[in-house]
Nucleic acid binder design. Structure first.
Lengths: 345, 345
DNA sequence: TTGAAAGCGCTAACAA
DNA sequence: TTGTTAGCGCTTTCAA
């Protein structure tokens, strides 16, 4: 049993068509320049051997790669999954493929991933950085591999970036609650948070400070077993806090869902006793009981725009730039005035 | 501004270290064979020029590719996102990277994706087929590209496969309801469903038939705007059906969530008036109100095992095989006996 | 309009 | 222990 590995090469096509490899190459890349008759013979031969162009060989010759890397926290996370889908679709017009990897927020995994992507000769990399040190990214960029920052502010870096104003998102949530009359507000976060969550927390803190209030900072260990359960288990600490908060801003919708569930189990009414705000506006948010007030951001578009920026890096007059999206407060039924608003007046 | 594109090549390293390229190659692949002193000089040079191996060149020389393709319905779908994460992790020990694409259940997109992956010279492809025709997959396999079927039974195909017994999953759901006393049972599916959902529906139908019952088949248009809303909107049709069902098996948890919400809005109690079963056991399932009875499957492991099978294809004594997972009924509070069970006796 | 030839970066067989 | 050499499949001058 002869295992014909891969489709035939250009040489085989040339042999069958009775022409040289360069003529086959011409048929493929500038058909107009080849005599109609020859072209026909070559096309027949291409079908006959089931010719498939060899990407690596093309790349070795210096043609642009069709591979684009995506480096995120976790491609199973619904947020990054949507972002990746956005990247995939943004890449499609250029015929590029998505090489996706997860860092689990570990700088060592990130570094290794970047290394592998560089070896593959990717056309560029979209990354939601796990580490705080941007120098590996600048190094990649200096070596000619375009890097686009995702869900991350550009600051003074000489790179393209797609960012959401996370601090504003936090501020919107806090101001909504302050406007409702809340004075004791908690932020439910993880023991170790990715940068966007840190910025949300600081946004909340800043808004509270501007109103002369202090943030109650509650941290849960996320990993074992799950954010959902960790958030539900945080209820005790929230209720025990003194002064007890009348509102909780959660790091994301998943945490909010867990918290909602834990509060319900504890017999605490939402929003009558405690208001809850999520972040992300996952599809389920509006179907929860009560429908969740949350801050939305354009997940899919984030990825799509990142892909477009990346593809643009190859074009002549490209200059690095940052595209900034604004988060959006979506008020539903999980927030309301605090119970004893009168006595706060 | 001289843009030094990519890191230095092996030749540059060789030049700096004052040795030949093959010595550099030796340092990299069989360091033991190189004199300690020479090796040192080469290693220094490698650092000096920031050498990064060129993957495509290696591949052109015939070394195995580090790229593995994953072709699914939609990488933003939580189920496939988890599967992809499983593949990624299953690939990691071999240092392979995940090239992920979505078909949106369209055979033309699938074909194009497979084509691109073949061009890239991937080491293999894990695929949840969109089309019903397996011949393109067999063709790929014949060309030396291992193909592993995902979430798809192997049947008589000469390929590796990782499958879940979807018909059994449907049967478990149906038998649970029949055991509770239900006689009028509906399946809530999409207008066009992927194969696994079709098999679930047939499993339900078969279990009902075995009990002398007939399936009430309800289809909703999924795409615009969302499954969640489509399911919620299906409530009218479910309530209007005659005879009106006392239980609904949903194509997945998302649909169940939408349905739960629609039922609640319509003032129908779950499970007192209607029982609801989901499928997938998403993390949110146990946090819904009421906690959702559903059928679970090992999403992450599916991907992980698929990756392992794929990697095994490269090894000497490999024979194609199928790994089959059993779905699992998870009984929670969204199912119970029908209201008028007495009159059914 | 077609073909010959060089070379991208690397590996491996072989020679020195 | 190290170097020379051929060649993987392709693109791209340049010459015929």
């Amino acid at each position: 049993m002869t295992e014909r590995v891969r489709g035939g090469s250009m040489r085989e096509v040339a042999r069958i068509a009775g022409v040289s490899v360069s003529t086959v190459a011409n048929v493929l890349s500038r058909p107009a320049i080849v005599a109609a008759d020859t072209r026909r013979r070559v096309e027949l031969a291409i079908d006959a051997v089931g010719y498939v162009p060899n990407g690596p060989a093309r790349q070795l010759r210096g043609l642009p790669s069709l591979l684009v890397g995506s480096v995120t926290l976790d491609l199973a996370n619904p947020f990054y999954a949507e972002v990746n889908r956005g990247i995939e679709d943004g890449l499609a017009p250029a015929g590029c493929l998505l090489l996706a990897g997860s860092t689990d927020l570990r700088p060592d995994k990130e570094e290794q991933l970047l290394h592998l992507l560089e070896q593959q000769g990717v056309r560029g990399i979209v990354i939601a950085p796990a580490g705080t040190d941007a120098s590996p990214l600048l190094r990649l960029n200096a070596r000619g591999i375009p890097v686009v920052l995702l869900d991350h502010p550009r600051e003074r870096l000489d790179l393209c970036a797609v960012a959401v104003d996370d601090a504003l998102g936090g501020r919107l949530a806090a101001e909504h609650l302050i406007g409702l009359g809340h004075r004791r507000i908690a932020f439910l976060g993880g023991a170790v948070d990715p940068a966007p969550v840190l910025r949300r927390r600081e946004g909340v803190r800043a808004a509270l400070a501007a109103a002369g209030l202090e943030l109650l900072d509650i941290r849960v260990r996320i990993h074992p077993p799950s954010l959902l359960d960790a958030a539900a288990a945080a209820v005790d600490r929230i209720l025990a806090a003194s002064p007890r908060p009348t509102a909780v801003v959660c790091l994301n919708d998943t945490a909010a869902l867990g918290l909602l569930d834990g509060l319900q189990a504890a017999g605490v009414r939402v929003p009558a006793d405690i208001s809850v705000i999520g972040y992300d506006d996952l599809p389920i948010a509006r179907r929860l009981a009560p429908p969740l007030t949350t801050v939305s951001q354009p997940n899919y578009e984030l990825g799509q725009v990142a892909a477009e920026l990346l593809l643009d890096e190859g074009r002549p007059g490209h200059t690095h730039r940052e595209i900034r999206f604004a988060p959006n407060l979506v008020v539903r039924a999980s927030t309301g005035p605090p119970a004893h608003i009168d006595e706060l007046r």
